[in-house]
């Protein structure tokens, strides 16, 4: 009975880790192949945060209820807060200094 719960927790942890590796790898490919600044910022915020949180959740399931899992929760909250604000700072600076985007967009705020 206890052996069954142990095997189930290990399977869940491995699923989290493999998903995390896939998302981080696709972030690295997207940084090279996307054509413009604004499209690369999509990869740098959404895809990267999905990969990081998946890997850290996999480690959290493997540890159980311990002192180390509290430190992992603090790391996840810190990453969530600072990554979003940093990408917003880059995009706001680029918009105010009129860096144009290479793909065809329609500006619908000024209408």
């Amino acid at each position: 009975m206890i052996n069954l719960i142990n095997i189930l927790m290990q399977i869940i942890a491995y699923v989290f880790l493999i998903t995390g590796i896939f998302f981080v790898l696709s972030t690295a490919v997207a940084m090279i192949r996307f054509p413009d600044l604004y499209t690369r910022l999509h990869a740098g915020s959404k895809c990267l945060m999905a990969g990081s949180i998946s890997v850290l959740m996999g480690c959290l399931v493997l540890e159980g209820i311990n002192l180390n899992s509290l430190k992992l929760i603090v790391i996840i909250i810190f990453l969530l807060v600072t990554n979003s604000v940093a990408i917003h700072v880059i995009a706001s600076f680029a918009n105010n200094h009129k860096i144009k985007s290479k793909t065809i967009t329609k500006n619908d705020i000024e209408d």
């Binding site: 807060v81 600072t82 604000v85 917003h88 200094h97």
Partner: peptide
């Protein structure tokens, strides 16, 4: 540039 108030509040946090 002038940033919104989100950035200033996060600075007080960090």
């Amino acid at each position: 540039t002038k940033f919104l108030i989100i950035v200033h509040q996060t600075m007080i946090f960090i």
